[in-house]
C-alpha cells in the first residue's frame, strides 16, 4: 500500500499529471496502449512459460484499469 500512496503523491505533487478529458483519450483507446501485448492469449501463454521455467511468480505483473472507455 505504501508504494501506491507514494506513487499517487509523486504523480500529484510533481504536477506531471494532466487532467485529460474523455475526448482527448483517442491514443489511450488504441490497442497498443492496452495492458499486455495485442493478444491476451499470447500473454497468458508467455506467462505460463515463465511460471513453468522460473522459480518465482508475480513480480512482473501489473493490474489496473486503462483508458476508462467502457
Amino acid at each position: 500500500m505504501k508504494y501506491i500512496i507514494a506513487t499517487v503523491m509523486l504523480f500529484t505533487l510533481s504536477g506531471c499529471v494532466k487532467d485529460v478529458s474523455p475526448w482527448q483519450k483517442d491514443i489511450h483507446a488504441k490497442a497498443v496502449m492496452q495492458e499486455g501485448d495485442m493478444n491476451g492469449l499470447n500473454q497468458r501463454f508467455e506467462e505460463h512459460i515463465y511460471f513453468s521455467k522460473e522459480g518465482t511468480k508475480g513480480g512482473g505483473s501489473v493490474s489496473g484499469g486503462g483508458c476508462g472507455c467502457n
Partner: peptide
C-alpha cells in the same frame, strides 16, 4: 493484489 493506474497526459 492492489493496483493503481494513472493517466499522465494524452499519450
Amino acid at each position: 493484489q492492489l493496483g493503481l493506474t494513472q493517466i499522465i497526459d494524452e499519450s
